[in-house]
Simulated scan of single mutants.
Amino acid sequence: MLKTIKRILGGFGTLNGATYPFKALITFIKNPRLIKYIVIPIVVNIIVAIALYSGLLFFGLQIVNDVQADLTLWLNQLVTNLPQWLGFLTYLVAGFIIIVRLLIIVVLLIATGFLLTQFGVLLGAPWYGQLSEQLEKTLTGKVELIELNIAGDLARAILYELKKLVLIALVGIPLLLINFFPGVGTVVSSIGSLTLTTTIVCLDFLDSCLERRRLSFRQKLGIVFKSLPASGSFGLVCLGLISIPLLNLITIPLCVASGTLFICDRLKATVR
């Protein structure tokens, strides 16, 4: 039994995938020359973060406050109409409201971190590409690169973003509709949305290494699915790291680097 659990967690890569951001941190410590490749992306992230957090997060918290006020009023009206001996429910209502508020704030932070990643990775792509190349050269001794002209690179980048939007729409819209069914629908929608977000995050952080090989969007998606559960735990940890305000300014470049480590390890395993 113990060997089976160890195989599931270790051999199948569940825990291994989650360790790559920390492996990337160790790599930066051992190779400080790589730090210069993340300076400009961090500056880009700061600019994008100021715009997102001052706008989206500000209005988001306003909505959270409005939802909390409406929910408090509605629940208090329900408690008021109950018999006096059920007065203890007032404390339960207060606790429930606090939990709902915290959950909404967590979702808001995840959404803001996700958007920061989309813009940050896109705008910092040239520098992240150089970082990924240097990392792969350090790890494998060589860099696989299929050259294209500027127009070709730009076309692929635009097409890649459009295909991500199509994937989000094809999966996200049905999940949104399922959410209207209370109970099971809400659970399915929540799990599905988290899976979709993790998949997109995983694609973004693996892309610097995969794009040099000029793989199609379907091939990149296939690598994510074939690498499960390691890619799943990798994506979840990265999603958590990019959702922490201020810290995500640094963790986004760290996750990009960890994506290169992830792919390089899989390439080594394939060669063996």
Rank of each mutant, 00 (worst) to 15 (best):
L2V: 08
G10H: 03
L15H: 04
A18D: 06
T19A: 11
K23N: 10
I26D: 15
T27S: 12
T27I: 02
I29K: 12
R33S: 13
L34V: 11
I35Q: 09
I40C: 07
P41I: 01
L52C: 06
F58H: 15
F59C: 05
L61F: 14
I63R: 05
Q68V: 05
A69Y: 12
A69G: 00
A69P: 00
L78G: 07
V79C: 03
T80E: 14
L86H: 10
G87Y: 13
F88W: 14
T90P: 00
A94S: 09
I99F: 15
I105K: 10
L109N: 15
A111D: 11
T112P: 01
G120P: 02
A125G: 07
E133L: 03
E136P: 01
K142T: 11
V143K: 00
L145Q: 08
I146K: 14
A151G: 13
A151I: 15
D153S: 13
D153R: 15
L154S: 15
G172E: 07
I173R: 04
I173M: 04
I173S: 01
I178Y: 02
F180E: 13
S193L: 14
L194F: 10
D207G: 04
R213N: 10
L221C: 03
P229L: 07
P229H: 13
G235F: 07
C238M: 05
L239E: 03
G240T: 05
L241S: 07
I242F: 06
P245K: 03
L249F: 02
T251E: 06
A257M: 10
S258R: 02
K268P: 01
